[in-house]
Amino acid sequence: MNKVMIWYGELLSQKSLIKRGLFFLTPGMLWLILFLILPGLILIVVSFAGRGAYGQLVWDFSLENYKRMLGFGIFGWTPDYLIILLRSIWVAVVTTVLSVLLSYPLCFFIAGKPERTRYLWLTIVIIPFWTNMVIRTYAWFLILAPEMPLAKIASWLKIISPGMPLYPSAFAVYLGMISMFLPFVALPLFSSIERLDWTLVEAAQDLYASNVRIFVHAILPQTLPGLSVGVILTLVPAMGMFVVPDLLGGAKYMLVGNLIQQQFGTSRDWAFGATISMCLMVLTMFSLYVYKRKSKGVELL
């Protein structure tokens, strides 16, 4: 076992190499195991516990929480939680699709700029990406306020009563979500579009392909790596989003994120909160599984 080997130009025994490697690995891995892996495992265990009268955990391992998630409560079957779950998936999908639709023109626009100014334009997309999500979300309050044109038009169309803001509403949630996640799609997509081989597009044009066919056969396959990264970077966090629905959706448009927050906050039902987190985790894993199958060898970071 203790054989001598050459590793990075150094002659040493395998045993001492492994010892040294473990020395490097241990601090970081120990930290991640203690504060990432273990808490994750505890969360799984807690999701099977119950809630005591004072919000403490009761160790009565049962599927009660999962049944409750599916709607089997004390008062018979209600689909409330399932609706929230499905709504979260729906909002995430709509957000992703619209972000993709808006990102393509944006990326073509930036890629068409001369090299000198291109990175300036790109920086303009990166800045919202890094701007705090609370600020970006509440900023919509101003745009949707009753004094602003959008709310005036809506009240003129009798959608809302005059003097009322356009939030909280589903519409506001979508606005907030798309503006939040659009850069998540646009930035990875741009890296693909920048490298696009335009000769293929020209070839398709020479062969009288329609614009739709040019996009589907000449552009889409080339941009798929960036697009799939963008989609997964949007879809997964969008399902767990909590700030946007909390500020712009209110109680009318709750998503899974709010539900989890509620359990750890006012309701003080950690076990049920853990259960909802597990459901979100399953959805995340499913999206990643589809992503892995569809796009082999595309790196996330």
Binding site: P39, I42, L43, V236, G257, F264
Partner: peptide, 15 residues
């Protein structure tokens, strides 16, 4: 990198 922040946050609260 991959899991939604809120799941990690929930795990931290419990831990």
């Amino acid at each position: 990198v991959i899991i939604p922040d809120i799941i990690f946050a929930a795990a931290m609260v419990v831990a």
